[in-house]
Design a protein around this nucleic acid. Sequence first.
DNA 1: TGATTGTTTGACCAAATGGTCAGCGGCACG
DNA 2: CGTGCCGCTGACCATTTGGTCAAACAATCA
Lengths: 206, 206
Amino acid sequence: MAAPRTRTRIQAKNSEAILEAALDVFSQYGFRGATLDQIAEVAGLSKPNLLYYFPSKEAIHVTLLSGLMDTWLDPLRALHHDGEPVEEILDYVRRKLEMSRLYPRESRLFANEILQGAPRILDQIEGELKALVDDKAALIRAWIAEGRLAPVDPYHLMFSIWATTQHYADFDIQVHRVLGQEGDAPFAEAERFLTQMYRAALTPAR
Amino acid sequence: MAAPRTRTRIQAKNSEAILEAALDVFSQYGFRGATLDQIAEVAGLSKPNLLYYFPSKEAIHVTLLSGLMDTWLDPLRALHHDGEPVEEILDYVRRKLEMSRLYPRESRLFANEILQGAPRILDQIEGELKALVDDKAALIRAWIAEGRLAPVDPYHLMFSIWATTQHYADFDIQVHRVLGQEGDAPFAEAERFLTQMYRAALTPAR
DNA sequence: TGATTGTTTGACCAAATGGTCAGCGGCACG
DNA sequence: CGTGCCGCTGACCATTTGGTCAAACAATCA
């Protein structure tokens, strides 16, 4: 829709390069802070050429966000009702943390957008996202009713998982500076900590 | 330093109005996305008048951030070594959550700055913040050594507290839309959830 | 080869943006 | 009451920004 249908190789290559560059720039400066010139430079294209592939700055941004939401929800979709509840949720935490490690720019793009009031993805939040969350909240409530999970508010449980895992992508600079570490070390530590915390909080008393 | 020394009443009033307006605008759009015209309009002053009180856009931003860091660390400073460790930390969580509820703009301003690489507060992060965190981490380690707290990584514990509490300010729109609620209701629920979660995770096995 | 379609760009534009400045008005105080 | 400083503003400026367009250039295929 926003991008021309990817027919030729050139189109495929350049559209990809633009989105890749835009992800870099938007995720760092937010929508209003990013400029087409920056994106063009990172993409190795001229500004008019960008606008040959996308009708506007906003179209690039929207394309990125839409394409992203789907991927972003995958870890939650994979929360299945078979399996041990506590371990299922711990797996979800690990998948979500892995997303932060592998796709920090995507996480920041999201954070930026929501910080600014989510003007371009409110629909998806109230639609897809809410529907999926409601669905999984019901699953969690069922587990709790069966006594297989400590009684916790499923919505705030999910919020806390989002917050703690995305923190390592979004606040990456702070984490590294406070720890005085570099690279992926914090992620390994975070996995241990979060596993331990959520296991303690979710294991039902017996 | 950045603002002229507040001598007269007019200066006090206008400097305050400018910072208040700037907090509004910067916290919503980030530094690059905010404009002086916007700030001036919100403050009810003319743009040249803004620049009579502050030498530049950046000076306003820096003034806000510097003044903020101190307040922001207060809840952590209040973590005392006397008292029951688990309850001390739960109090800290509640204070931090209360900050998010009362000062969401401040939280977003911070989030925006860190998302963008914290160019203007890296020093304070590596200085004040790190020093305070190191100090409190030692306190937590001592509690653990005494067997009064479950053995957890103190740094990642603090990260998780920051993440979960600030989430309710920074991702406020998402929280409200997913819950289908308005107002402060999510904060009351969050307090219950976080208290429960951290109590479970921090209470030592016996 | 030539015609057609797809791709790229330099030059340009209007609007917005951060910032300047000369001067005007008003408040305070001797 | 006058004079001097504080507060304020309209007009202005250079630069940046999103976006346009005609024309040049490349790829493809009959």
